[in-house]
């Protein structure tokens, strides 16, 4: 197991190299001049040329990529073109907010989604099942930004229950988490329900009942654990979509997260900032996938033995 984890972490290196290369290439090949962006339209050609030389922009882009990566491995992610501050500090001051938002959304999803899915499956075709299925359909169909705006309109403006913008207290996270997690919550409810129903039909569930196991025991000990694999996969996948969804939610709720930062950085052709943000994204998603695979192994002994002990 430990060997498997080490192998997986090492396997992230080529992924990081690949993604960084693609992003660096795109940033270098798209039109736009960082020197112009920094000095403004009124700058003299000499000043621009001097700055380009100074920033190393005149060198071949492969050479620049190599230099960037060697520095990055040493922990130096360069200076932001637009804010003139170290990229590392900038990214690290904003990432916790985005991660907090995503994690809270995941918790919101799991705490509501799995129980609703289970109840729906156990009470198949009942009123409660119909309500949750219609609810799930609604949540997947509603665009996130609209839901966010409606929440602000109702809960902040009309009833003054929750703050509309900022990140000052836990209350600030309630509406963004609902907005961000809503669509994935609906997916989770459906996945939980359909997998529970699938597993309930298996022979070993009948065996459990033939042993004299009660309803609760059959649901939680025998059915849920077997249904967990696809549920965990879904949660892992949702995390990726949550991180990107965070970009919209952060702008709706005025949260200083990484999403708004990336958009601004791309506009300003701020290569160091874009690179560092994307690399952090990649590492986080890679780690989430690894965690999902470890949870697999904990749940299912067949997966565990395929990892080699």
């Amino acid at each position: 197991m430990t060997r498997y984890i080490i192998k997986r972490i090492l396997a992230m290196i080529p992924v990081l190299l690949g993604i960084s290369f693609v992003i660096f290439t795109i940033m270098s090949l798209t039109p736009g001049d960082p020197a112009l962006a920094i000095l403004g339209k009124d700058a003299t050609p000499e000043a621009l040329e001097l700055l380009r030389e100074d920033m190393g922009l005149n060198e071949h882009f492969l050479l620049r990529y190599a230099k960037y990566m060697t520095n990055a491995f040493r922990g130096d992610f360069g200076i932001s073109y637009s804010t003139r501050t170290p990229v590392f500090d900038e990214v690290f001051s904003r990432y916790p907010n985005t991660l907090k938002l995503s994690f809270f959304s995941i918790i919101f999803m799991v705490v509501l989604g799995i129980p609703i899915g289970i109840v729906s499956a156990v009470k198949k075709y009942s009123l409660i099942d119909s309500i949750s299925m219609i609810g799930a359909l609604l949540l997947t169909s509603i665009p996130g930004f609209w839901l966010g705006l409606m929440l602000i309109l109702q809960l902040s403006l009309k009833y003054r229950l929750l703050p509309a913008i900022g990140i000052d207290s836990w209350k600030n996270y309630i509406m963004p988490c609902i907005t961000l997690g809503a669509a994935d919550l609906a997916i989770l409810v459906r996945i939980t329900r359909s997998n529970m129903l699938e597993i309930v039909r298996q022979d070993y569930i009948r065996t459990a009942r033939a042993k004299g196991a009660g309803k609760m025991r059959v649901i939680f000990k025998h059915t849920l654990r077997n249904a967990m694999l696809p549920i965990v996969t879904t949660i892992g996948l949702c995390f990726g979509s949550l991180l990107s969804g965070a970009i919209i939610v952060e702008s709706v709720f005025g949260m200083p997260g990484v999403g708004t930062m990336i958009i601004n950085a791309i506009r300003a052709k701020d290569t160091p900032l874009v690179m560092a943000s994307v690399l952090f994204f990649t590492i986080i998603i890679g780690l989430i996938n690894l965690i999902v695979d470890i949870i697999y192994a904990i749940i299912d002994p067949r997966v565990r033995s395929s990892y080699g002990g």
Binding site: D203, Y204, T207, H222, N226, D300, P301, R302
Partner: peptide, 13 residues
Amino acid sequence: FQDPMTSLNPVLS
């Protein structure tokens, strides 16, 4: 039961 292959819960020892 008829089929021992599917009669045992795969995730419990």
